[in-house]
Write a protein that binds this DNA or RNA. Structure first.
Length: 814
DNA sequence: GGGTTGCCCGTTTTT
DNA sequence: CGGGCAACCC
């Protein structure tokens, strides 16, 4: 079920193996006929470096899978001689499924997976040579930061002054570039934290080594170092991988680039597919240069452009193309509409709203309208710049009773209880997993506090043993010793159980016997019930695994983005999360200066930051098949304060012929006919007038912004409240304003105010005094249990829809 | 060793 | 405004 494990299945365990049987005879390749000429060329041009510049919606996954199938069918390669890397588990799963349809079982032997999964595979095979013991663990970001924080504190760094998170970031950026601690030149090192970052990088790596742990960056860096130190091993892989395919090449970092270059050195058959216009992860170490310089690195490279877009209407493509044309340094590529009905589409709608709440309300109304017109909810998405923006949309969706899903925010595997449970499992598997030990030894409370832990770690460090082993040797108070002895005995007993019991029942038993589940049962806090539910869910997930170690390696690599949405629900997510997805209708709210483009991107990375923001806008627009709605709010609550805002400069970059502009008249904002703001609140007026001096810069506390601290002349292009602006002092319309219309509601929708779900009117208000734990019924979500209440809103765990926040009046007692 | 309060800070986050 | 965390108190 995970890519990693699929990957390890039925493939040769060593890379040396060569085909013993002759390649299959050539056979007709029918799937080639489904391709357009460029796609076909990208499939058939098998030899030598190939760069496929694949715009949004031009069928790159199809090209990749067909290319693999073609290599197999023509006998150019045996399955394990093909390496295909993706960025997400989701992408590799999808590719694997599609490939299996074309190539059958052979698909399973292709080395297909994420960069990190391939990295694990290589490191597992050559653990000793890479300086690891078998069963090394993969740290999550949480663990990483804790390790670093500990090291910094131990070495006398004031972590209030120097954030371990920043240190971690610096180290990760080095790793992203394939640099080991010893590779950091003085020039490379940062003056931050008195130039001690390099030293901490070394200390951090040492500590990971002691823990027999690697972090995500190591999954790329360590294979790289392995290949550097062991040309013989590199040689094996270079021989093995006759064809290498890379998805989303614009998002590769330097380490990945180096790995690919090394691996492709012998056969030169490196096929990279990507779109420089969709590079949106530079802040994580992705290097657009990789794609921009491909032809310099591989002078004999063939470049194929896929520009026929099968997804969007001509208007959407026109708007997106004009927007992205404002970027410099592109490889250049123009999407052409290829859908037969592309020319019939509607223009991209542009709307202005009085404030963020009203914007959310209107967007949700439009969703209802479109739904009644026949667009499934799952084919509509709200794409926002920052995850905080999801909140008002969630509120409105709840109010409207529309099933929805928010992607981002809390991730299942990042929740406290899940991490605790996973830590228990880790400890059971490997008693020397100090991080797991420290995490659970006092959960539930066993009276093991800081002093006991300090004694343990001192002993552990002194004798170079694990915390678990240190229990035997450390000097401890008798009561603590007794507790710890009992604990370690228990862990050993659980360990022995792994032989006989399946993972799912085992985790149940462990969580029960350890007192972990009982701890939550007696916990009277509102979240407790949800946590118990999550732990149940964990045990469900575990049923899919045969061994605990299989699960743990999986859990280290998955994220929530892998969850597949099958239900008919509207999805609300960040633009970043939307990359690679498509929807019939896309809503793009919050196009305001400071928010999008985000002020921080402008302040910290200047022009390059602006261009990346613009690419993000491009990604957003090109997600839409039929319709896109862009909007901005004149006024938005930020950090509890109401702020006036200017429309995003990106709006000005949209070509009029593709836009249905409901927002402007003579360049002044006004409200479109169906977008009259009801007077929701007035507080914005308190922000206008004399207190809106030039130093009042909009988002965040003005005095905190980078440019102000450093150079008052280096200001953003826009002030937020210039007097010359149409938004400055923009009056909130009053009831008797000449512009005021009676707000229409869904004129073209059936007369009922709300058309979805069919009957929303509550039978009776559900409002007993003590609500937590009560079984309730909701018209849309069905039966559920109240988990938490926050005022009028209740958090309910629905049997089929999971955790949702709903208003009490939509619930009836079950 | 554990609970509470008050302060700080707020972009994005495929693995 | 609201979540997370550190200092503080019991």
């Amino acid at each position: 079920m995970t890519d990693f494990f699929d990957l390890s299945d039925d493939t040769p365990t060593t890379p040396i193996q060569q085909p013993t049987t002759p390649p299959p005879a050539q056979q007709p390749i029918p799937f080639l006929d489904d391709l357009n000429p460029e796609q076909r060329q990208a499939v058939e041009h098998t030899e030598g470096p190939l760069l496929v510049l694949s715009g949004a919606g031009t069928g790159k996954t199809r090209v990749l899978t067909t290319r693999i199938a073609y290599l197999l069918a023509t006998g150019k390669a045996r399955p394990w001689q093909i390496l295909a890397v993706t960025f997400t588990n989701k992408a590799s799963r999808e590719m694997k499924e599609r490939l299996e349809k074309m190539a059958g079982l052979a698909a399973r032997s292709v080395w297909l997976g994420t960069f990190h999964a391939i990295g694990i595979r290589i490191l597992t095979r050559w653990a000793a040579d890479a300086g690891l013991k078998p069963n090394f663990i993969v740290l999550n970001s949480d663990d990483q930061e804790r390790v670093l924080k500990q090291l910094m504190t131990q070495n006398g760094v004031d972590i209030k002054k120097y954030d371990p998170g920043v240190m971690l970031d610096i180290i990760q950026r080095w790793k992203d570039r394939g640099l080991a601690p010893t590779d950091i030149t003085p020039a490379e090192n940062t003056p931050w934290c008195d130039g001690r970052a390099q030293g901490f990088y070394q200390l951090y790596q040492n500590r990971l080594h002691e823990l027999n742990a690697v972090d995500f960056g190591d999954l790329l860096l360590l294979p790289l170092l392995l290949f550097k130190n062991r040309p013989d091993i590199l040689d094996l892989y270079q021989n093995q991988f006759r064809y290498i395919l890379v998805d989303e090449y614009q998002d590769t970092n330097v380490a990945q680039y180096l790995l690919l270059r090394l691996l492709a050195k012998k056969h030169h058959n490196l096929c990279c597919v990507g779109d420089d216009d969709q590079s949106i992860y530079s802040w994580r170490g992705a290097e657009v240069e990789n794609i921009l310089k491909f032809q310099d690195v591989y002078p004999d490279a063939c470049v194929i452009r896929l520009e026929r877009n099968y997804r969007s209407t001509a208007h959407i493509l026109g708007a997106a193309a004009a927007l992205i044309a404002h970027n410099t340094g592109r490889l250049g590529k123009t999407l052409k509409a290829a859908k037969s009905d592309a020319a019939d589409g509607e223009r991209v709608a542009l709307n202005a709203y009085a404030n963020g709440f009203y914007e959310a309300q209107k967007v949700i109304e439009k969703i209802e309208v479109e739904h009644t017109r026949g667009t499934p909810l799952s084919q509509m998405a709200v794409l926002v710049r920052a995850s905080v923006q999801t909140r008002p949309f969630e509120d409105e969706l709840i109010r409207a009773g529309i099933p929805y899903k928010i992607i981002g925010g809390f991730k299942f595997y990042e929740r406290e209880e899940i991490r605790d449970a996973v830590a228990y499992l880790r400890l059971i598997l490997n008693q020397n997993d100090d991080l797991a030990f420290a995490r659970v030894v006092n959960k539930p409370r066993r009276g093991i506090g800081d002093s006991a832990m300090a004694a343990l770690s001192a002993t552990a460090r002194e004798h170079k043993i694990s915390l678990f082993e240190a229990v035997t040797w450390a000097e401890l108070r008798p009561s603590v010793r007794k507790t710890l002895n009992a604990f370690t005995a228990q862990v050993k007993a659980w360990h022995d159980l792994t032989e006989t019991i399946d993972p799912a029942p085992l985790v149940q038993q462990v969580l029960e016997e350890s007192g972990y589940l009982p701890m939550w049962r007696t916990d009277k806090s509102p979240e407790a019930e949800g946590r118990i539910e999550n732990l149940k869910e964990l045990s469900n997930v575990l049923k899919e695994f045969e061994t605990i170690s299989a699960f743990i390696e999986y859990a280290a690599l998955v994220t929530d983005a892998d969850a597949t949405a099958t239900d008919d629900q509207v999805v609300v997510m960040t633009l970043h999360a939307a990359k690679g997805l498509e929807f019939d209708i896309v809503f793009l709210p919050g196009w305001e200066e400071g928010l999008f483009p985000h002020q921080k991107a402008l302040d910290e990375v200047g022009e390059a930051g602006l261009e990346e923001e613009r690419r993000l806008a491009y990604v957003g627009l090109t997600r839409a098949r039929q319709k896109a709605f862009i909007s901005f709010a004149e006024n938005r609550r930020v950090y509890g304060q109401y702020q006036n805002a200017l429309p995003s400069r990106f709006i000005a970059e949209l070509p009029a012929e593709h836009i249905a502009d409901h927002s402007t008249l003579n360049n002044h904002c006004r409200f479109g006919a169906d977008d009259i703001a009801p007077l929701m609140w007035h507080s914005s007026q308190s922000r206008t007038g004399s207190d809106s001096s030039a130093s009042d810069t909009g988002w965040g506390r003005g005095s905190d912004t980078f440019w102000q601290k450093n150079d008052p002349t280096d200001r953003p292009v826009f002030d937020y409240q210039r007097k010359s602006d149409p938004f400055y002092h923009h009056p909130i319309r009053t009831q008797d304003s000449p512009y005021r219309h009676t707000p229409r509601r869904n004129d073209d929708a059936p007369s009922s105010t709300r058309t979805y779900p069919p009957q929303l009117t509550p039978k009776q208000t559900y409002n007993p005094t003590r609500r937590i734990g009560k079984r309730v019924f909701h018209d849309t979500f069905g039966f559920g249990t109240v988990v938490r209440e926050e005022g009028h809103r209740l958090e309910v765990h629905f049997d089929t829809y999971g955790l949702k926040k709903v208003l009490a009046e939509y619930l009836t007692e079950a």
